[in-house]
Design a protein around this nucleic acid. Structure first.
Lengths: 232, 232
DNA sequence: TCCCACGATTGATAATTGTCAAGCCAACAA
DNA sequence: TTGTTGGCTTGACAATTATCAATCGTGGGA
């Protein structure tokens, strides 16, 4: 594994506090690979052989049942995914595919579990990471169960606006069909939802979004830190 | 804290492997309390002062937004809740209320975090617990996004049937209005959903459920271990 | 015993969301 | 340039789900 990737991973909160020798042990069995877009990295139900770290690009976590499919999350650099499956030595609950050309580090799950057993700092870092993940999913759950699709879209846009720096105009960071899936609706419905938000101060031009009336838009969206704040 | 409660808690996977002295330290600040039914134990948004352990009775975890409310989970003995908030020292994402007369142990979050920092076994146990919780929520998410309400109900009934021992007849373990909320639908819809499942081999008499045609019912429900299995 | 409270059910209706088919448009390759 | 592809949009329609109002039934409490 090249030194630069090594450094990037070491700097992750998950790995930064562990003992040098344990980190080295983890990296010995690890390797970095470049994947083109639209490659299925893992398939739900498979045993969790590797902990994955997205170094560049982006990865879609999705799941299918009975001919239906839904996106559950997007993983962006630098972060890991399927940590829970790795720790529990349980099958993946989600499939993963690259959204674009991506560089991914693969760390054998076995090694992760072994180091987890002997390195308290690593174990504690994992706790923090898992607690964070858990709370994110709970928020997503509340978003889904408490809001209509129009409200989910409005709040998604506010979150995206904030991530993009807070300006009135910003770009969507992925294609609308996937956004629809993430928000739990069809692409057609998303299209109509964008229209439905215009009366509340939204303008859409392709992938370019402009909030023309921030106050009115927020009055409609009613964002809530216990659902929409990424940090807590 | 009475010895019996002490023992029950000690036997939980979360606490069973930690050092005696650390467990004692945790228990010193803890106390057990009896609550009547319908008491709000915690409120979302509040700081997480205590890790809760349900010793008897049951607790509903729910959340509200914009005058709507939804049940996210039910906690039954013997298990803990709001572990993630405690660990992260972050506000509760859900409110909790007793569904019936319940005995709850309260362990100061501060103590939990302190012991977590010094006891590797405790930290590892927390990881396992959090990973389990995380995967449960992911399954719930998939259930919500991939299935219609009829399908969610059918699969819920199959899970409940299994929990109850697998016999064709079994009882619902809580009132229908709450079941509706858990399944993400209205009580009226649930009522109709029960009717809608009759053609697939289901009989309902009040709280008594009978699967009259197991094969046909499962053919409709299409249960999937990656959504419906509690263990993995 | 009767009455009340409360959850469950039902019917009527409306809102929301999904499905299907067609058309639009920009990107891209021949 | 032309043709093709794929994503996005639109319209018409159907299915699903929610809302509102009324009723039913059961289990306490007076």
């Amino acid at each position: 594994m090249p030194d630069s990737s090594f450094r990037e991973i070491r700097d992750l909160a998950l790995f930064s506090q562990m003992a040098d020798e344990n980190f080295s042990a983890l990296m010995r069995g690890a390797y970095v690979q470049n994947f083109p877009a639209q490659i299925e990295l893992i398939t739900e139900g498979d045993p969790s052989d590797f902990l994955h770290v997205v170094l560049s690009g982006s990865v879609d976590l999705f799941s299918a049942w009975n001919d239906r499919e839904t996106s559950l999350a997007t993983v962006r650099p630098i972060s890991t995914f399927i940590l829970a499956a790795t720790i529990k030595d349980a099958p993946y609950l989600m499939s993963a595919r690259t959204l674009e050309k991506s560089r991914i580090a693969l760390i054998p799950s076995q090694d992760v579990r072994a180091v987890f057993d002997i390195d308290g700092n690593f174990a504690r870092a994992i706790v923090t990471e898992l607690a964070q993940c858990y709370r994110s999913v709970i928020k997503a759950q509340k978003d889904l169960k408490l809001r209509t699709s129009l409200e989910r879209l409005a709040n998604y846009l506010l979150r995206q606006q904030r991530r993009a720096g807070g300006a009135a105009s910003f770009d969507l960071d992925f294609e609308k069909r996937r956004l629809a899936s993430v928000l739990g609706m069809t692409a057609e419905n998303l299209s109509r939802a964008f229209k439905g938000l215009q009366p509340y101060g939204l303008e859409v031009d392709g992938t370019r979004i402009t909030v023309t009336n921030q106050a009115e838009f927020e009055r409609f969206a009613k964002p809530n830190p216990l659902i929409d704040d990424g940090s807590t």
